[in-house]
């Protein structure tokens, strides 16, 4: 077993990366809607509801390091990831369009950005939630 100090340092760093990912995702989504004026679709809102609190939860858990954070952060990550996967399935037409619950207002499958041919806003959200989930799993193994 590694010395305690070293373990907690590594755990802290992992949690810091979680916080950094959530913060970048939060500011990025705000940039898209408030600066570039892309109206967010309903799916985006559900994912925002899960992503924004993570910035605060991770931040609080960093000082001092609180390993119980996983318990509180996980539900948000899972729910957000669920919507992100669902929206990407719609986007890639793996699920039929007619099944989507967001027919009113902005379409959840519209292409506001498409960097390098695959990096859409929908994909960015999926990547962010996946990174946080993987880091949290890693954190669990190292810290608890």
């Amino acid at each position: 077993m590694p010395p305690l100090q070293k373990t907690s340092n590594l755990a802290w760093n992992i949690l810091f990366l979680c916080w950094l990912t959530a913060t970048i995702a939060t500011l990025g989504s705000l940039f898209f809607s408030e600066v570039m004026m892309f109206p967010p679709c309903i799916m985006c809102w559900y994912q925002r509801i899960c992503m924004y609190p993570l910035v605060i939860i991770f931040f609080v858990a960093l000082f001092p390091l609180d390993t119980k954070v996983v318990k509180y952060a996980q539900p948000f990550v899972f729910i957000g990831l669920f919507f992100a996967i669902y929206q990407n399935l719609l986007y890639y037409k793996i699920l039929p369009e007619s099944a989507q619950p967001c027919s009113q207002g902005v379409s959840c499958t519209s292409d506001y950005i498409n960097w390098f041919g695959f990096l859409t806003i929908q994909m960015l959200s999926l990547i962010a939630f996946s990174i946080i989930l993987i880091l949290l799993l890693f954190f669990k193994r190292k810290a608890i």
Binding site: L20, T23, I24, L27, L30, F31, V35, M36
Partner: peptide
């Protein structure tokens, strides 16, 4: 650790507002 957090927060906020200005 606090330094790391505040520096990254500072960088991100600057990037956000700088980005808005440039955009």
């Amino acid at each position: 650790k606090q330094k790391i957090i505040f520096i990254s927060l500072f960088v991100l906020v600057i990037a956000y507002f700088g980005g808005s200005y440039l955009y």
